[in-house]
């Protein structure tokens, strides 16, 4: 049994919220540079060049990469041998988000009720996903999610007979509908299998996988490559203003499902695909 103090969790989450909103992870940073080198459209290159300048300014002047600093999505992988003391885990997480967004000059974009719509003023609550793991460590991933792209995400409850073609069509439909609204170049997270809510979670989690890392399952890796190619043939391009870079990556996660179903979730993310992971 290892003891972790709730205050340490709060402090880490605060720092991670600020870091994620000012610096892209190395995988995303590399992907954005490659995109600029490969883009064929002149306006597309100009936009990707602006995004390079934007990242530089964000890091140097500590101005968030995007003004939509997102709703804080947080994955907690809790080792079975971890004991948390000094308060409730959920409170510790939300306190970290509160401090990160307030002290880090991040935008407060959360309303307390989906229909009454009053801003909570500190970007809480976070959306927290808990998972149990082996060991005595706590793995935290902070992934602030912007809603321009979140709004274009979809769940498709396909029939088994729709097969892999059905999955491909679902991904392309979601990407084309998203078009310029989702701030392309996008990262496309896909969940296949499980249940209605499980596939959505798989898709969200897929967005936190480095964009230069393919699935370990051979046919899924092939599907990721094929879909990235096809998405980049749509012509949507950077900013949706035409070009050959519409997506930087397609990350797909799968899970066993029911004999009667083939759920597919497509979680669209923009080029500001933020994710920071720490183990404490």
């Amino acid at each position: 049994m290892r003891t972790i103090n709730a205050a340490d969790i709060t402090q880490n989450i605060k720092e991670m919220c600020i870091e994620a909103n000012h610096f892209l992870a190395n995988d995303m940073d590399r992907a954005m540079k490659t995109a600029l080198a490969q883009e064929k459209a002149p306006l597309g290159r100009q936009i990707l060049g602006q995004l390079q300048d934007n990242l530089k300014i964000a890091g140097e002047d500590m101005i968030p990469i995007c003004q939509d600093t997102g709703m804080a999505v947080i994955f907690m992988e809790i080792g079975q041998d971890v004991h948390i003391e000094g308060g409730l885990l959920e409170d510790a997480v939300n306190e970290g988000v509160r401090r990160g967004y307030t002290e880090g000059y991040l935008r407060k974009s959360v309303v307390s009720d989906p229909l009454i719509r009053e801003n909570t003023g500190d970007n809480t609550p976070a959306v927290i996903h808990y998972e149990m793991a082996a060991g005595d460590r706590l793995k935290i991933t902070v992934a602030p999610k912007g809603f321009g792209s979140e709004n274009m995400s979809r769940v498709f409850m396909l029939k088994p007979a729709d097969g892999i073609e059905g999955v491909k069509n679902s991904i392309l439909t979601a990407v084309k509908d998203a078009g310029p609204n989702a701030c392309p170049p996008m990262v496309v997270g896909v969940g296949i299998g499980g249940t209605f809510e499980k596939c959505a979670l798989l898709a969200k989690k897929a967005l936190t996988r480095p964009v230069d890392q393919h699935s370990a399952v051979p046919y899924v890796k092939e599907l990721e490559e094929e879909m990235l190619n096809r998405i980049n043939q749509t012509g949507i391009g950077p900013g949706g203003l035409g070009g050959t870079t519409t997506a930087l990556a397609v990350n797909i996660n799968t899970y066993p499902t029911h004999i009667a179903g083939l759920p597919v979730a497509v979680n669209i993310c923009c080029h500001v695909n933020r994710h920071v992971t720490r183990e404490i």
Partner: peptide, 13 residues
């Protein structure tokens, strides 16, 4: 007009 989405730091200048 469109401004480039996700370039908020640059546009702020």
């Amino acid at each position: 007009f469109a401004a480039v989405g996700g370039a908020g730091a640059l546009l702020s200048k």
